[in-house]
């Protein structure tokens, strides 16, 4: 981990581009290929690359686990909440047309918002899984020592 100078320089250059591309896929998904799911995965891949090169601890300082848990629930909440909002505005569940004055504008808002929810949840869950696996691997000697001594 100490001598990976090339990896560090290249990934410092790549990670912002990965984030930018994830945001592009997220918010341009209605026009080009992609959407919330792909954007969430690409965004988490950027952070995983950071964790691989700079260590899991520094990556956890970027996005701590408790924030990831909140984000994972927040995405589902945004999605389901959009449905509730359309219910309250007098439409059916997830009927986006009632969210704005016209049908098309409402559809557009609805799709952007739920894609954002999808992206947030996917990004958070992928990182939760990665951190769970990475954390599980590290202290295994400590755990074994403790279990052996009891």
């Amino acid at each position: 981990m100490k001598h990976n100078l090339i990896l560090k320089v290249v990934s410092k250059f790549l990670i912002p581009l990965i984030f930018l591309f994830a945001l592009y896929v997220q918010f341009h998904g209605d026009f080009g290929p992609g959407g919330g799911f792909q954007a969430g995965v690409i965004f988490s891949a950027g952070i995983i690359l950071y964790a691989l090169v700079f260590g899991v601890d520094s990556a956890k300082k970027v996005i701590p686990l408790h924030i990831l848990r909140v984000l994972a629930s927040l995405g589902v909440l945004i999605y389901a909440g959009t449905g509730v909002a359309s219910l309250l505005l007098g439409g059916n569940y997830l009927e986006y047309g009632v969210l704005a004055s016209t049908q098309l504008a409402g559809q557009h808002i609805g799709i952007i918002v739920i894609e954002l929810g999808v992206g947030i949840t996917v990004m958070a869950v992928m990182l939760i899984m990665f951190f769970a696996f990475a954390e599980r691997g590290r202290p295994i000697e400590d755990v074994e020592d403790k279990e052996g001594s009891q």
Binding site: G29, D30, F31, G32, P33, G35, F37, G75, V76, Y79, A80, G83, Y93, L94, Y96, Q103, L104, A105, Q107, H108, G110, I111, I114, E115, G117, V118, T121, V122
Partner: peptide, 25 residues
């Protein structure tokens, strides 16, 4: 109906919004 040029996104997010909600869950 949706104003979204990408048919895949239109189907996933609007016509099949319930399915996608299930997938996120």
């Amino acid at each position: 109906e949706t104003g979204v040029p990408n048919v895949v996104t239109a189907v996933l997010a609007s016509y099949r919004g319930f399915d996608t909600l299930g997938e996120v869950t």
